[in-house]
Simulated scan of single mutants.
Amino acid sequence: MSGAIVSIFMLTYNQEKCIKQTIESILMQQTNFPFQLVIGEDCSTDATREICEKYASDYGIKIKLLPSPEKNIGLIANYRRTIAACDGKYIAICDGDDYWIDKYKLQKQVDFLDKNPDFSIVYTAVKRLYEDGKIIDYTYKLNKKELDFDDLIFDNFIYSVTALFRNIQGRNKTLPSWIENFPFGDWQTYLWILKDGGKIHFMNDITAVYRMNIGVSSKYMKENSVFIGVLIGILSCIYKDENFSHKKEIVALSLLNKQKDLVTCYNREKMYVKGFQLFLDIFKKTKNKFEWIKFYFYSVYKSFV
């Protein structure tokens, strides 16, 4: 046990150009509690590992380095082993290409969760950093005072670099193995934490910078149909998972919404055969067949307009 109140969970691979900035942004945190940075370094082919090793050597137990011993194991395998090594009361995420800009980020978020035991996750606004150097403030907040599983199941509105959440791993509630089938794991992690209760709090501060259009999962987001297909796969696994059985109705509704989105994307991308095949699959199962027919043909029509 590290004795840390917060474990900061970081994945890194071939990020020598930005990893120093990322680590320094965590070490600058001013808190009245101990925290530990846990780095999952996945056999980088550049100087990333050497940089991480130097920081781990200089800062002792404040940094726990988990190097992949022989070969690159991939983002999600690295995700699961790194989060499993986080033993703090709370977990924060900061990937190796993002960074924090508020030195009181952890203190403010821990103070909130300590005072509000009915909340399990707190997140903030963020700055988006684009490849051309442009930085834009970004806030995504639903028009509700209280958010929970039933909101997050429809859309992951939490930027991982801003999140702090309760660590429930000590209760024999490790993440499900099916998470390894997908190119990212943060959304599934939040849903796992919230499935038995707990609310989400939005803190209206800008605490971090998120680099746009880089990283392993970014390639899945460039084509809407591919990205939505990944989300459908995740929702399908959640629907089948016995641990979410009490949430089946809301998961099924989200799954149907994403399938409708995928039909629309296929039609917009002129992949009409795929769109029609998905339409038929859902048509066989849906009770409201007339509404589904209307939706499909309107989607086809809009793809030509």
Rank of each mutant, 00 (worst) to 15 (best):
Q109C: 01
W178N: 13
K260I: 11
F184E: 08
E41H: 02
I91N: 01
S236D: 11
M28K: 14
G170C: 11
V126E: 12
I238V: 09
A84Y: 07
S25N: 02
T45R: 15
V6S: 09
T264P: 02
I63Q: 03
A125I: 09
Y190S: 01
A77I: 05
K64F: 09
V161C: 04
G233S: 08
Y13R: 14
N181L: 09
I135L: 15
N243P: 06
G74N: 01
I232W: 07
A56V: 08
C86K: 07
P69V: 11
K240P: 04
Y266I: 04
L253Q: 14
N181Y: 11
K219W: 02
H246F: 05
I200H: 02
Y210I: 00
S2M: 11
I136A: 13
G60T: 03
E269K: 13
D137Y: 15
I250P: 13
A85Q: 13
I73E: 12
Q36I: 07
G3D: 03
I293A: 05
K294D: 03
Q21S: 03
S177R: 11
F157G: 06
L66S: 06
R80A: 04
G74E: 05
N32S: 15
N172S: 14
G198I: 03
I8F: 03
I193N: 01
E131A: 15
I73V: 13
R49P: 00
Y239M: 14
T139I: 14
E269W: 10
Q169F: 14
P117S: 15
F295T: 05
I179P: 00
G275D: 01
G198R: 12
L113P: 12
D87R: 07
I250N: 11
S44D: 09
Y301I: 06
T162D: 07
N181D: 15
L147Y: 08
I250H: 12
D186R: 00
Y90W: 05
F227G: 12
F112D: 06
K103R: 13
D46T: 09
S245H: 13
P67Q: 09
Y79C: 05
Y159L: 07
Y99M: 08
A77Y: 06
T82C: 12
D118Q: 11
R81K: 11
